[in-house]
Design a protein around this nucleic acid. Structure first.
Length: 423
DNA sequence: TCTGGGGTCCTAGGACCC
DNA sequence: TCTGGGGTCCTAGGACCC
């Protein structure tokens, strides 16, 4: 049996934990650059004029009219709260698969001394007690069914109190008949539409389709979902995250940029971020992609976008080597006279450090012997991000950085921003 | 003025090998 | 008249997730 534990409106409730004055009031969290709404608590969801993913400038009036408190996203805080939740879960089972920042699958097969329903309540209560975050718990024989059980745990709250177990055939059928096919994990908008066209509206009706039809129209991915809904485990339980296959970052600028120098600095900054991730997982990258584009939404601006992928002379995780490669790549695709909105970098061909093959005609890479990069990382770990950085990143970060006007304090990671209980 | 960011998995088709 | 059969590797694009 597998439990799916999922935090309710995670980002919004993280903000509320530190702002008891906002309990019971509508709260939303905005995307990077304060562009659109990416999370809303149930009070905010209840206000129908606030659709998710709507650009903020279009609904700002409604937010204010309805007394909605909004926050810029504060990933440092959410990431740290997430770790606390995952740590608590790891005490409940040796097998935990962290699926995303706010949810995890927990193997509860071994639980014999009490009912799964009580065990679910224990997880839920302890997480709330230790972190202040409300969660929902769904327990079932497969991952897809556990996801569905979780959804049911959150509906009809008074009845289920945030925990729902599918442990009998009767409950499974009832759950399937209750669920709109679109709410099934893995069935998105495109497939749901196609299914509705052939008269399949519920998860139950979906399981009644012949396997051949599912395979033909939804590939083996669809077949796995189909089997899982029938109670046949078909999606692996992964406790060890596999090393990433690609590491990239791309963010819109706080304002549009024309100047190559400034774009280079942003690009170098992103390279510093991704190469640090690379070093943390003890890997090196073989390819580097750099892309650049103007604002697609603008009717007035001339549009241009381009991308380039370079093969590195030797796979590397060296920030400085990567920055100079990225600079060359950017020079090759940059065209003056456009107002750029975004630059991005992506590392791929990621291999473990010990498999890197040297180049006969080049000196051994720096990361392979020198202490420079490990010292660099150690300093930034101890004293905070960007305490030391490459000179090519420059010091004009504020001029292109994304906008975060309403970010809450980093309550859990900065001494200077601790929550003040009384002044 | 203003529209997110980071991922995974699968398939088809092209180019190539013997 | 008539042109095989078995592979690999790579990329782009689609669909989905949070």
């Amino acid at each position: 049996m597998i439990a799916l534990v999922d935090c309710n409106s995670f980002y919004a409730t993280c903000e509320q934990v530190f702002r008891p004055d906002l309990w019971g009031k509508p709260v939303v969290v905005l995307s990077n650059n304060d562009g659109c709404v990416i999370a809303a608590n149930k009070e905010a969801k209840a206000i129908s004029e606030i659709p998710m993913f709507e650009p903020v400038f279009k609904i700002k009036k409604q937010l204010i009219q309805n007394n909605v408190t909004f926050f810029s996203s504060n990933y440092t805080l959410y990431g740290e709260m997430s770790q606390r939740v995952m740590n608590i879960l790891s005490a409940f089972s040796p097998q935990v698969e962290i699926y995303s920042i706010d949810e995890a699958f927990v193997d509860v097969s071994g639980i014999k001394h009490l009912s799964l329903n009580s065990y679910g309540h224990q997880m839920k209560d302890r997480i709330f007690q230790y972190t202040g975050l409300p969660v929902g718990v769904g327990i079932a024989p497969t991952k897809v069914l556990a996801k569905l059980a979780n959804k049911i745990s959150k509906k009809r709250v008074s009845e289920n109190k945030g925990v729902f177990v599918i442990d009998t055939e009767k409950k499974r059928i009832e759950a399937l008949q209750w669920a709109d096919v679109k709410t099934v994990w893995g069935i998105g908008g495109k497939h749901a539409k196609r299914l509705k066209n052939i008269g399949v509206f519920t998860a139950y009706e979906f399981t009644m389709l012949p396997e051949e039809w599912v395979r033909k129209n939804m590939t083996v991915v669809g077949v796995r979902i189909w089997k899982e809904l029938k109670g046949i485990p078909s999606i692996e339980f992964k406790t060890m995250p596999k090393p990433k296959q690609g590491i990239g970052t791309a963010k819109s600028f706080g304002k549009k940029l024309e100047d190559l120098g400034m774009i280079q600095e942003a690009c170098s900054y992103y390279i510093s971020e991704v190469s640090e991730v690379l070093r943390n997982q003890k890997s090196c990258a073989t390819y580097l992609q750099v892309f650049l584009h103007t604002n697609y939404f603008s009717d007035r601006d001339k549009q241009y976008s381009n991308s380039i992928t370079v093969t590195l002379p030797i796979p590397t995780c060296d920030t400085f080597a990567l920055i100079s490669e990225a600079k060359k790549a950017l020079d090759a695709i940059y065209k003056p006279g456009y107002r750029y909105k975004k630059v991005g970098v992506c590392l791929s061909g990621i291999i473990p450090r010990e498999y890197v093959q040297g180049n006969l005609f080049l000196p051994p890479p720096r990361w392979n012997k020198g202490e420079l990069l490990s010292t660099f990382d150690a300093i930034n770990r101890k004293y905070g991000k960007s305490t030391v950085f490459s000179g090519l990143v420059g010091t004009r970060v504020k001029e292109w950085e994304l906008i975060k006007e309403d970010r809450s304090p980093r309550y859990t990671t900065q001494w200077g921003e601790l929550l003040r209980v009384r002044s």
